[in-house]
Amino acid sequence: MESYRQKSDAELVKFSLEGDKQAFGEIVNRYQGMVARTVKGMLGDSVFSEDIGQDVFIKLYYSLSDFRGEAKLSTYIQKIAVNLTLNEIKRRKRFFSTFSQKGNNEMYEFEVADYDTEEKKEARELVGKALMSLDPKFRVIVTMRMLQGYSTKETAEILDLPLGTVLSRLSRAQEQMKEILGKL
């Protein structure tokens, strides 16, 4: 595995397309943190989010041949992660609006890891609750900004949105976030 760590993304993609599973494993290692922040940031920190995370890499594996290398591999993976997560949010919304009268709040779960200190647990819980209270169209923008550190231009590219839309949504998301945090 050590030798794969030195390889570039393009080399890893090439080896993966030739059937080298270890090369694909290195792609998973390299980008699982990024995918975890997107998926868990938008869906909540639960085992179900982990399944979506796996789906992201499985979809990547079967669509690697479509990756032309024009954009960065991280952008390509991020797009898959955002799309699958938004689909999951829609699916859950449909499910809960059909089978539950309690609203959508119950669709998110928090499983704060045991290894965290009390202070870190509180911090993660606060961020998790605040994110889940946001409208999904704002949540995705906030996740890209706050948990991934993307600029508005990068966010617009990943979400396939005009820059103006991202800027206005970010501004509205900040207002909504102020309100939410005031109540927490």
Binding site: V28, Q32, A36, E50, A123
Partner: peptide, 12 residues
């Protein structure tokens, strides 16, 4: 502040 998300061990 400790706000970081990870998948469980053995994810790969």
């Amino acid at each position: 502040a400790g706000v970081d998300y990870r998948f469980s061990d053995g994810f790969r």
